[in-house]
Design a protein around this nucleic acid. Structure first.
Lengths: 280, 280
DNA sequence: TATTATTACGTTAGGCGTAAAGATT
DNA sequence: AATCTTTACGCCTAACGTAATAATA
């Protein structure tokens, strides 16, 4: 049976050309390494070396053996790597959501129910979520509708979210009880990044508007407080991102802006604990 | 570092489903095998087993690990096999000849010069020899001409051979000093098998003749002695296959039937000893 | 003389089996 | 009670390093 440790020494010798040099490099004694090479030769069962009195070199068979040994060693490390990778995947819950707010609700519950699991969340466009479905690269999805690409059994209502604009109290729209996106088209807005499908929704329904996207939360808040540009807020986000005193929220009346989110799980039995928790 | 012996036990366990059964099968104790499985698990570094108190089973990661381990083990045995194969090829001289007689001359010399080498001889058609050239699947070739597919430096004259027919003394051709193949066309002949290009030569030049091919040397000789059918003989073969008293050899005059054989070697430096020996 | 490979040899770590324990059917 | 896995423990092999040898540049 091949000893992979000795085989590693063997290819190291091939790349170095000297026993003593390898011995020093890997911190074993020269006699040990010499014996290892004899063992390798014995397991192959054919001569691999030219032995002159004080110089060991590979013969042509030895060179071939090195070549094959390298691929063997690399498949060996592949074997380890892939199994570890597989195990890691088993221990991570991949959550892909079309919007951030549902994650705020979902993550604390997930962490509580599966404390040993790693939870990998990402906010995706709808087409990315569709891709995740067809590639099976998810454990949990959050969509703004029930998809027909998955069975109804695996999808459940999660929560509603209602979009408002957030304007200075002196803004020309400030007095209205509600607005529609058509009326908003043309106004420029402050927008946070990582909004998922909200971002696309705004751009599609207000093509004449421009959106100043802010990546940084602090900078975004500063701008909301100190500029006159309108921004967005939702009923769910209002706890996390309170409205400044000089601003007021005005609900958007469009159906598109009042969303129901649905959770879809790949493995219903694995997450039945989660699902029953969410129903409460 | 993976221990392949333990890994073998691991896949054996996967195929069997019980430690004690495997232990019995491969003649080691159950505790040793138990430890081996613990070692395998440790080298992978992830859980591979479900451990109930008295039943060990693989988890899903374990099943993946078995899968990868099987391919690793098979590439390991491939590695051994291919290196051994390569070594074996280095230690065999592959000789392909268009006819048997040149081998009679060549083989004793080869055996004397390279006593440790295995010599693999075969008698081939010309097109097989051409294939051997393009596939590099030879060490020494014997052709009835100098081929242009190889450099002149690697080809040398070996010997001549002259074909005769061998007829009963009462045969109608028995009195002739020589014959041409055109005149022989239509006669039926006894023919030995394994004649290489001689066989094709006869069939091409005497298409109206029939050839009774004998595989067995004894049977062939019996027929030559006891039938009236003409056969063939050459000057080189005459020592090995003496002409019966009731027969006589008549030389064939065609140029095709009087051949010069050439030896071609793949590695001239490797066989320069042989070549200088042959020149004597 | 310095460097290199290998053999000799003594020590010790680790691998194996026996015995035993703990648990299940 | 029989079967199965795992732990405990002692033996003994075999793997390692040091020291020595032999040979070369």
């Amino acid at each position: 049976m091949i000893n992979l440790y000795e085989l590693e020494q063997f290819v190291l010798f091939a790349e170095t050309g000297s026993l003593s040099e390898v011995a020093e490099r890997i911190h074993i004694s020269a006699p040990t390494l010499s014996r290892s090479m004899q063992n390798v030769e014995a397991t192959f069962g054919v001569p691999l070396f030219n032995r002159t009195k004080n110089r060991l070199t590979l013969n042509t068979t030895g060179l071939k053996a090195v070549e094959y040994s390298k691929t063997l060693l690399s498949t060996a490390s592949d074997t380890l790597m892939k199994v570890r990778e597989y195990d890691k995947k088993l221990q991570t819950i991949v959550v892909k959501s079309c919007a951030p707010a549902p994650l705020w609700k979902l993550l604390p519950t997930l962490n509580m129910l599966y404390p040993s699991m790693t939870i990998a969340t990402s906010i995706c466009d709808i087409n990315e979520l569709d891709a995740a479905i067809s590639e099976n690269s998810y454990d949990i999805l959050i969509l703004p509708y029930m998809t027909k690409a998955l069975s109804e059994d695996s999808q459940f209502f999660l929560m509603d979210e209602h979009l408002s604009i957030c304007v200075r109290k002196d803004h020309e729209l400030a007095g209205k009880p509600s607005v529609c996106m058509k009326a908003l088209n043309g106004y420029n807005f402050l927008l946070r990044s990582e909004l998922g499908f909200w971002d696309k929704l705004c751009r599609q329904n207000m093509p004449a508007s421009k959106f100043l996207v802010q990546n940084d939360e602090f900078e975004f808040n500063e701008l909301v407080s100190n500029s006159s540009l309108p921004s967005f807020i939702t009923d769910v986000a209002i706890d996390r991102y309170p409205i400044p005193q000089n601003r007021i929220a005005i609900p958007i009346s469009d159906a598109d802006a009042n969303v129901s989110f649905y959770i879809a799980v790949k493995n219903t039995s694995k997450y039945k604990g989660l699902l029953s928790k969410l129903k409460q």
